[in-house]
Design a protein around this nucleic acid. Structure first.
Lengths: 209, 209
DNA sequence: ACGATATGAATGAATG
DNA sequence: CATTCATTCATATCGT
């Protein structure tokens, strides 16, 4: 049936080339990144063999740097690749398990591919040395978390009507001292905490019909 | 940049609601806010031209009120928009940043030519009529809270936004962004080219060769 | 050529 | 503020 990742054909990095369609500027060429086989192989290796699902910024940099050997690639490509791969995997899996169960459909028409745990074993050696599952990135500890003294925060919000908008962000660059001065006097500082959609959300839960 | 061709992705921002076809499950239609071009344009104006990065609750109210003229919108939408916009800008920069930069790399293969597609709208300044620098109505100065009893700060979310970072909208400070990767312009708006407050927007159109 | 599927890219929403 | 999830758009590719 449908081969999910059957694009085993050489696509030759599509370095612009003709791309007759959509010629706006000089050469918009291929608008989107087309991973080469090597790149895909390595990405999958990282994904399945190394358990990399959501690489961090620094990992993305390294990965893309390494993949650049096999073709043009940018950090965002790696980022999106992992995002998409994970998302689709889960999405598919969910469908597979959540189908309305309509008898007669038989298999429902869902192909059963996935699980590519087959090859990509030989290339495992190309992994230089960023395990992704080991220590690697350390916690940076952003810094000042000692709220000037009053640390323990434990009190349910009750009044958030204090609209003393000290606002400041106005003006170009005038925001440096935005919430700087009153942090000491205002217990509920933090600009948007006042807002915080997480609480004010009016979820429109229209019933199913 | 990667985008510049999908400016027409304006799928109706209506929320429908009817959902004529039933049978399956609740179909909340378009659950998420779909900004209109005007809304995005204004948001970007605030972001780039006015340096608004993290509007306070008060500002969010005004902004959303103003944007409501152009379509349905809620405060949280504005809130999220700014959060996302800022976050992605930084994130993308992080991905593409050649951190290591060891000599000898010889640039590896990163082409960095001109080809800035310098295309600016002729919309110099749209100057919304409310914010930013004018003091319009009497804004209460920060001030008397009388509450110095800091012992129970209600920061249930633990945001600790007291970042004394010297940067912010006006001064940046710290990292001199050297590359912009794919943080380029947007289909909706692109007038911050007027002046470069914090960066020299160069827009490296990822040119493949 | 066209429809279906696969997948890169983008972004709103949400969580930590 | 960083990270992640979910949706959706756009396009490349394959099947018929």
């Amino acid at each position: 049936m449908e081969l999910q990742q059957q694009q085993n054909q050489q696509r030759s990095q599509n370095e612009d080339g003709g791309s007759g369609k959509g010629g706006f500027l000089c050469r918009p060429s291929s608008t989107r990144w087309t991973p080469t086989n090597d790149q895909i192989r390595i990405l999958k290796d990282l994904y399945y063999n190394n358990g990399v699902r959501s690489p961090s910024a620094d990992q993305i940099q390294r990965i893309s740097a390494r993949l650049r050997q096999y073709g043009k690639i940018e950090g965002k490509n790696v980022f999106y690749w992992f995002q998409n791969h994970k998302a689709r995997e889960r999405q598919k899996k969910r469908f597979n398990n959540d189908v309305p169960l309509q008898r007669g459909v038989g298999n429902g028409g869902w192909k059963r591919e996935e699980s590519i745990h087959t090859e990509y074993s030989t290339m495992a050696s190309i992994t230089p040395g960023f395990p992704a599952s080991s220590s690697s990135s350390g916690t940076i500890s952003v810094g000042q978390m000692g709220n000037y003294g009053f640390g323990s925060v434990n009190m349910e919000k009750s009044f958030m009507d204090c609209s003393i908008s000290t606002r400041a962000s106005g003006g170009v660059g005038g925001s440096i001292s935005q919430n700087f001065g009153w942090v000491g006097v205002d217990p509920y500082f933090s600009s948007y905490t006042l807002f915080d959609p997480r609480r004010s959300m009016e979820e429109n839960s229209a019933g199913e019909e």
